[in-house]
């Protein structure tokens, strides 16, 4: 049994008196995708922010490649270099062209030369059908294209683990499919991922494991088929029923 890329042990997180995450434990083996589903406020985004150290946990531990990244003396910058995160609101840098958005971190963080960084960036843009957008500013792109550029920007630094936080929540259904297929390609290429999403398409097409998060606790977990087709917990059934009614399943 090889070591999992990510191992989360009994994590607890609260904002003041309000407990947001409680007793969260799971692990993500290499080349697999774990998808967190659950209604808004269930703690999905907080969990990802804690893994990326944008938020700090109150108890438990998070290990990346066997190294405790939540230890008090952990090097935050070094940890973040191994993690990629994509946000709901894209967060591309509006003053830089697409190509410069992608090459910034490889050049400044990894010290790769401009030529090599550009070459790599063009390879990625080619692969995801965005070659002709390289010289555009982000605001000239559609939402789906912007989100795909954001994904490319995150994987350009070759992260060990990619975190995707509600990446399709700001997109209309047509654009969702475009981003979905990009993420599916990443999965096929072996990227290890943790996703938080409302979009059941991700759970169905990308997930190796689906976790249902409810009020900060993992209520139920298993393969996509288990969770989406034969949920055991009443809360999971209720949630999937509501998603189904909203036409998202």
């Amino acid at each position: 049994m090889t070591q999992p890329v990510l191992k989360v042990n009994q994590v607890r997180k609260s904002y003041g008196a309000e407990v947001v995450l409680e007793d969260i434990s799971f692990s993500v083996p290499v080349h697999t995708a774990t998808v967190f589903i659950g209604s808004s406020g269930s703690g999905k985004s907080t969990l990802l922010r804690c893994i990326n150290l944008l938020d700090q946990i109150d108890d438990g531990s998070i290990e990346l490649d066997g190294e405790d990244i939540t230890a008090v003396d952990a090097d935050v910058d070094k940890v973040r270099r191994k993690l990629g995160i994509v946000f709901q609101s894209f967060n591309l840098f509006p003053h830089m062209k697409v190509i410069d958005n992608i090459t910034l971190a490889p050049m400044k963080v990894q010290g790769i030369s401009k030529e090599v960084a550009r070459e790599n960036a063009y390879k990625l843009l080619d692969r995801f059908g965005l070659h002709d957008k390289a010289q555009d500013y982000p605001d000239r792109l559609s939402g789906g294209q912007q989100q795909r550029v954001a994904i490319i920007r995150s994987i350009a630094v070759a992260p060990r683990l990619l975190l995707l936080d509600e990446i399709t929540s700001a997109l209309d259904p047509v654009l969702v499919n475009e981003v979905l297929s990009t993420v599916r390609d990443l999965k096929i290429e072996g990227m290890t991922m943790v996703l938080a999403t409302h979009e059941m398409g991700f759970a169905k097409q990308v997930a190796d494991e689906v976790c249902f998060l409810h009020h900060g606790k993992i209520l139920e977990w298993g393969t996509p088929t288990q969770i989406l087709e034969a949920p055991q917990q009443p809360e999971t059934k209720e949630f999937l029923k509501r998603v189904h009614e909203a036409g998202r399943l």
Binding site: L54, D77, G84, F93, L104, V109, V157
Partner: peptide
Amino acid sequence: QRAAARSLGL
């Protein structure tokens, strides 16, 4: 914007 930059390792 800062969060995006920091999360890229800058």
